[in-house]
Amino acid sequence: MNKFMGANVVFSPEWFYSIDAVLSLIGIIIALTLGAYTYKIYGFLRKKKYQYFSYAFFAIAVGSLIRLIMNSSVYFFLFNKSPPEFIGTIAAFALSKDVITLLGFFAGHFLTLLGFMTIFFIAHDLASKKLYFLLAYLIAIAAWFSNALFFSYHLTSAVILLGIFVKYYQNFKITGNKLVVIAFGLFTIAEIAFLFLAKSQEAFVIGEVIYVFAFIFLLMNFFMIKMGNKKNSEIKGTKSGKKKK
């Protein structure tokens, strides 16, 4: 673990440098896809919980993107790499002042935690706004302290994700849907792996790989529903073919 402009920075093994960026991008794209789809459902059903659920995925996507930008900026700077001009401009801005760097890391951590916390709230059917704002404040503190104590972000994430996993496990016993419960189980395991970052760089690789697999399971769930429904509609469409004009 290294200190960089007031923030603690953890390095992955050198061979993993660009791979982790690609993995993060996959996660971001999946989170955006799920957010957009859930927002589309909100447009159809007009139920608030779908709106909040979509915002949760957008927050995770934006938080992950900010973390990717901040980590890449530090990487370009410390290893004297020259990125493409556009990325270089962003990286230069991200590191232009201590306060921007610290706020960048904070925003990335806070938004990701806020997204998972919102999913926790919806999954557990909690409706108290007071509790939501209290927890948002607490995760803001956890996110801020993660600048000094890297551990605090991953521990908070692990606890929230474990809470979601438990709820989805109960849901799995009713619906039989394995993919979502596996995804949140993997997210939790990934965050637990990240807790060992200070001890070993391999923990970062293991955590990142498990993390992206968690997103892939969420995407699989999405596609299984889409594909299953498409097949279903084709069968039903044929049955009702006589109704076609």
Binding site: Y37, T38, Y50, F222, N232, G237
Partner: peptide, 26 residues
């Protein structure tokens, strides 16, 4: 009363939403 293609599309879309919602316990 006869179900139209648009009606079938509605059923398909609604089923998809229901499955997605069930998977996340929404």
């Amino acid at each position: 009363y006869i179900l139209t293609i648009k009606g079938i599309d509605y059923l398909v879309k609604y089923n998809e939403i229901r499955k997605f919602s069930d998977s996340f316990g929404l």
